[in-house]
Amino acid sequence: MIVRTDLILRELGGDFMIVDPSQGKVDMSQVFKLNHTAADIFSHFQGKEINTQLVKEYVLDNYDIAEEIAETDCHKIITDFLKNGLLLDR
């Protein structure tokens, strides 16, 4: 899976938002809010291969976090990305 390249991550007042225009008609249901870490992961992996292991490695390299917590958090982030259609099967 890769992180979609047609989505724009926008920062407003420290919050991060993405609008998914792929359904043709854009409406409120396609607005996603991301926290700082999720936004960082989104930008880092945009257009690249993504899975829990890769995200975990990235998070451990860049954040001060215990491995078990990273594992759980990264899995959750990937699930959220998937659920919200931010990822694409390659």
């Binding site: 724009i8 926008r10 407003l12 938002m17 609008v19 225009p21 854009v26 409120m28 396609q30």
Partner: peptide, 10 residues
């Protein structure tokens, strides 16, 4: 803000 963002995207 979300409504505005949708408009920008359009």
């Amino acid at each position: 803000l979300a409504r505005w963002l949708v408009q920008i995207e359009q």
